[in-house]
Design a protein around this nucleic acid. Structure first.
Length: 289
DNA sequence: AACCAGGGAAGAT
DNA sequence: ATCTTCCATGGT
């Protein structure tokens, strides 16, 4: 077993990360202990679990990382990437002080964007969650992973694309997937297995290039491509204007009569660039219980 | 019971 | 290219 203490220079609201992660029943989180167990797949069939416990505060973040076997350096690096501990959250908050979102950034300092635990996982989860209320969305993704994924010490790993590629559509329908959602999930996984879709390769391209490529795949629209970039890859400048949550948050924050249209959202968002992802995350946060 | 949900495809213009 | 309609399925 290895253990490592990490301290950050800037701020980081880890307890908020935990409350967000706890939306997902698949993720083993304990908000009282301030811990989360992160499933990390270094390669296929090379599954690891890293326990993270918060020791510090938002202003003075400090974490204890713990793993079972070797690979300490690689796993710590992975965790740093997932939690994006290198993002300059102070500078980002400062950037927003001259915008209309300043009050939200003062209310929620150090709000981080924690990435999903893998590119494929992020894409599947995002497709499954399209157009569904969050409760049912998580019910579906949980059924999906608990049926086809693998549990190690109480921690769930998503199935790999080759497992999903072989699922008959009817089997997902039994989990209450719509026919189309079953097709999106399985067909996209097949494209990955066949090498027609390479997420690692995509992740090195520009936002626009990624969106152009992903949108060509049946079942992936603009919203899903943006969300993959934001939560899968961890890009800074995504503003999913079609997202109902973003729309509702802006309506509430700006006291609008009705939900803003996407053109108006993009216009507002110009001042938020190049950190529009962080505008998105505080807007989402502003309407969470 | 109607409308909504952290959309998308297919068809119409 | 942009607008409309339909699709699915549970939640409130």
């Amino acid at each position: 077993m290895w253990k490592e203490i990490i301290t950050l220079d800037g701020m980081f609201d880890f307890d908020y990360s935990l409350s967000r992660l706890s939306f997902d029943p698949l993720i083993k989180v304990n908000q009282q202990d301030r811990t989360v167990y992160v499933p990390v797949k270094l390669m296929e069939e090379d599954k690891h679990i890293v326990k993270i416990q918060a020791l510090g505060t938002t202003e003075r973040p400090k974490f204890a990382l713990e793993g079972e076997n070797e690979e300490q350096e690689t796993l710590v690096h992975k965790i740093k990437e997932i939690f994006q501990w290198d993002k300059p959250l102070e500078a980002i908050q400062h950037h927003f002080q001259k915008t209309e979102l300043a009050p939200l950034f003062r209310k929620y300092p150090g709000t981080p964007i924690v990435k999903d635990f893998g590119y494929y996982e992020a894409l599947m989860k995002t497709i499954i969650h399209q157009q569904l209320n969050m409760k049912f969305a998580y019910t579906l993704s949980t059924r999906f992973v608990q049926k086809y994924g693998e549990e190690v010490d109480g921690v769930w790993f998503y199935p790999s694309p080759d497992v999903v590629a072989d699922i008959p559509y009817e089997d997902l329908r039994e989990l209450q997937f719509s026919q189309r959602k079953a097709e999106y999930i399985i067909d996209t996984s097949r494209a990955i297995v066949e090498g027609k879709l390479n997420l690692n390769e995509l992740a090195s391209k520009s936002d626009d290039e990624v969106i152009q490529s992903l949108v060509k795949i049946r079942g992936i629209g603009h919203w899903t491509a943006e969300n993959w970039l934001l939560f899968g890859v961890g890009r800074n400048n995504l503003l999913p204007a079609a997202d109902i949550g973003i729309q509702n948050a802006l309506k509430k924050f700006l006291h609008l009569e009705s939900k803003p249209h996407k053109d108006d959202i993009y216009k507002m968002g110009e001042a938020w660039s190049p950190y529009r992802s962080y505008a998105s995350i505080v807007l989402w946060r502003s309407i969470e219980g």
